[in-house]
Write a protein that binds this DNA or RNA. Structure first.
Lengths: 302, 302
DNA sequence: ATCAATGCATGAGTAAAATTAATGGTTTGT
DNA sequence: ACAAACCATTAATTTTACTCATGCATTGAT
């Protein structure tokens, strides 16, 4: 009944001062506008303008409508332009899901340049999912999953973005600190510090302790890497971490980094997306940035 | 491009859960909605829903639109219902112009019951007009003019709403306090207090002093009746007021009320409106209230 | 596994609405 | 007095919106 065009006409007439000029602005004929508003006035049962000679003067009702137009039309125009940008993959919200606790540090390194490169794309990071990371991806709860466990499924696509070695961190003066590498039973009398997630999602258990049937003396958890390593440094336990993260901290704290097993525990982190999202430019760009970062790390080592 | 109907559809689908149900709510067929949104999606170049089996799931773009719909649609609906009320004369703003300073007290007595009777009508009072009260009425600056000078003009209509006598107020112990009535030259050695308006709008001049060629010794002004009469009571001057107002104050202050001339100065207050507004119910109602109040005053005197 | 129910999409036809063109009347300013 | 500017109106046309009929996919029950 009260349509966008009506508000546009009211606004244009106010700006231009006459129906004829307003019609020009709206790329319509004066007749079209005259008909259009006449119908509106009939439907509402109230005059919007008083016709005084060849001048239109807003009535109280008209003033209200002008006010409404000035409030509402910009919102519609704004929404349209944003949708336009979304359509071209320039704008949106990239919802990232994390299934890999220590990867948060890594993620931040990717997010920073991403935000700079895509000023109209927001990034949300979520860490809790009702039906797991893959479920969140399939349920459109997130758009990108950072995970060490690529769960190949219909409609999903995973790409590895970096390889790392899972290592053990102990304080400098620790009994094991001089060893070349560790065996599972070395941890039998140790206190192990991990993130607070179930054991089947901790590689130190699934790939190291469980196969050898070993259980550490105690198991404590910590939400944050910082606190965890403060505790390791003060002799309260040992922790398993990606090597790159462990080495970053060992520059600041008295920590020694040890290989787990003769060949070490090799891990990969994958980024998972929905195949249907393959045309979203900023999503592809994020993955590119992740790959570029990995490549930069490799180059650095060489 | 992005029309009200589109927002309505998005909102209805969200509320009802399906296109079919939404169509029912909007009194349209499912087909109509399907066509309508298909076109919108094509125009915007972006999907609003993902079709998953027979379920529709909002995309990010769709979420934005839903958000917009929930913000904008109520505003449109609200505006429509208010216009509806305005159309029926139940709602609006009654802009009252005053060309009669002391009438403000009287106006308040009419406004109070009016506001109670017309809860959706606001009252604005204005006292300054670029081209005088009649000009303000003709320019739609105000809708109702309270004036002692009915200036009959094409398209305007004036009705008298009350008669009063303009009197002089002096302090009890004043030299003139015992007089039955005053003559113009009695004021020649007095200080006259008036509202700050030009002399040709002060009846004491136009109808009393000027005809006799008398000028008071001094002329001071005061914006408010209260201050003015405080000054009169303390012997700083004399003031001309409507009798009803003077008597109201003389109950609280040591003031004596004196007739101006043998027969007194008779005045009327008129309410002026545009003839084209004669169908505005609340405007007629206001005038009725004013008349009723006048009638009640007369009855009281009897 | 089959079947009915439910839901969305689509094509064609139709009804409705918007728009234009043409024109006339009024006002405004020169 | 005249030309220019402006709005209203009628009639014709184009465009858009809507419905009907139908098809296909999914869902859930037996």
């Amino acid at each position: 009944m009260l349509e966008r065009i009506h508000l546009s006409v009211i606004q244009a007439v106010d700006q231009q001062g006459s129906l004829t000029a307003a019609a020009k602005q709206l790329h319509l004929t004066q007749s079209a506008l005259s008909h259009s508003i006449r119908k509106l006035e009939q439907n509402l049962g109230i005059a919007i303008w008083l016709r005084e000679g060849r001048r239109l003067r807003l009535t109280q009702a008209g003033e209200h409508l002008l006010n409404l137009a000035n409030r509402v039309l910009p919102q519609l125009a704004d929404a349209e332009s944003k949708l336009q940008q979304m359509a071209q993959g320039e704008r949106g919200t990239l919802r990232v899901g994390m299934e890999c606790h220590p990867c948060y540090q890594w993620l931040l390194k990717i997010v920073a340049p991403f935000l700079a490169q895509w000023p109209d794309v927001d990034v949300d990071v979520k860490q809790k999912f009702q039906f797991g990371g893959v479920g969140a991806l399939l349920d459109y709860e997130i758009d990108l999953l950072v995970t060490p466990d690529p769960f190949h499924s219909e409609g999903l696509h995973f790409v590895p973005v970096f390889d790392y070695e899972q290592v053990l961190v102990v304080p400098h003066q620790h009994a094991l600190a001089q060893r070349k590498y560790l065996q599972a039973d070395d941890l039998a009398d140790q206190t192990l510090l991990t993130y607070p997630v179930s054991k089947d999602r901790l590689d130190i258990y699934t790939q190291f302790l469980n196969p050898a049937g070993v259980t550490p003396k105690r198991h404590k958890t910590s939400e944050t890497t910082d606190i965890m390593l403060q505790m390791v440094a003060s002799g309260r336990g040992v922790a398993a971490l990606p090597r790159w993260l462990a080495e970053e901290y060992s520059a600041r704290l008295p920590l020694t980094v040890l290989r787990l097993g003769r060949n070490g525990i090799a891990k990969q982190i994958y980024l998972g997306t929905r195949e249907s999202d393959k045309d979203i430019e900023y999503l592809a760009a994020f993955i590119d940035l992740a790959n570029a970062y990995e490549q930069a790390s490799i180059d650095e080592q060489a």
